[in-house]
């Protein structure tokens, strides 16, 4: 514990945040449950879609039935770890002037939301585990279980990269209201719901896209959110691919971090602390 605090001197502030953030989630039980329900429906939809495809085909873009269904189920878990974030509230807090409350305290706003997110992610993970069991029982899909240590470690590593990347994307998008307080919702919608859903592999495995498009996509941060982690789990990406993906993902974290700091520094200079 001591050593840990030494290396992350500011992190211990955020421990308490976990319990408070969780209780906050429980205060909005209905909200949380609907978001889980939406996730479930989506899984059903995608599951039956692919099931019907495989009722005629044996092999589809290199996916057999077990792998594609594992992909779909993998999405359930990986989504609730990567694509769940409360940082969507950053935009509103800046637009409404609630950021003021944080600025007068010795707290890092970026870490604050990141830690709140981690708490929420645990909650989602907990729920998705049971949903996973239930769905598994109902649908009885053929499931691919990965046993290769390299793939499992690679999977966990890529998950962490995905979580950090997505958080940073949403956080940076949340800074737009410093300059355009009215734009907050539109930016988030386009960025998170449209671009991410589509380009991260939440709806379909990205490698069914033409090779050139996939090549271009692999230079953006999006495939590293969902697609890469699951592909690694499925054992379809070798050690070299894992390292390459980790490298590109990590590079994006550095780029976004640099960018985020610049935007934040410029943002709080123009911040008006409106709304009194």
């Amino acid at each position: 514990m001591r050593l840990w605090v030494k290396f992350f001197p500011r992190m211990h502030k955020y421990f308490k945040l976990y319990s408070v953030a969780l209780r906050q989630e429980f205060a909005y039980r209905a909200n949380f449950l609907t978001s889980r329900l939406r996730n479930l429906f989506q899984i059903f939809l995608v599951f039956y879609l692919w099931s019907s495809v495989f009722s005629q085909e044996q092999d589809f873009f290199g996916y057999d039935r077990a792998r594609i269904l594992t992909y779909v189920f993998g999405i359930l878990i990986v989504r609730s770890l990567v694509l769940t974030t409360r940082a969507t509230e950053v935009a509103g807090e800046i637009a409404r002037g609630d950021l003021t409350n944080y600025l007068v305290k010795p707290i890092n706003y970026f870490y604050y939301w990141f830690n709140r997110d981690i708490a929420v992610k645990f909650l989602h993970l907990f729920f998705s585990f049971f949903e996973f069991l239930a769905l598994f029982y109902i649908l009885r899909p053929p499931f691919f279980i990965q046993t290769e240590p390299v793939a499992i470690i690679g999977f966990l590593l890529s998950l962490i990269i995905g979580i950090v990347l997505f958080y940073m994307i949403v956080f940076i998008a949340g800074l737009v209201p410093f300059w355009a307080p009215e734009a907050s919702w539109g930016v988030q919608f386009v960025l998170i719901f449209v671009v991410t859903e589509f380009l991260s592999g939440a709806l379909f495995p990205l490698d069914i896209l033409p090779r050139q498009i996939m090549d271009i996509l692999s230079f953006t941060p999006f495939p590293y959110l969902l697609f890469y982690p699951i592909k690694i789990y499925l054992g379809q990406i070798g050690l070299f691919g894992i390292l390459k993906g980790a490298f590109v993902g990590f590079l994006w974290i550095l780029i976004l971090n640099f960018f985020m700091k610049k935007v934040w520094a410029a943002g709080i200079r123009v911040y008006r602390a409106e709304g009194r």
Partner: peptide, 20 residues
């Protein structure tokens, strides 16, 4: 402007501030 967490008892905010 309020800093207290709206949906929780005030003691949670106090505890959080203690850490902060």
């Amino acid at each position: 402007k309020n800093q207290l967490w709206w949906d929780l008892p005030a003691t949670d905010t106090f505890e959080l501030n203690r850490r902060i």
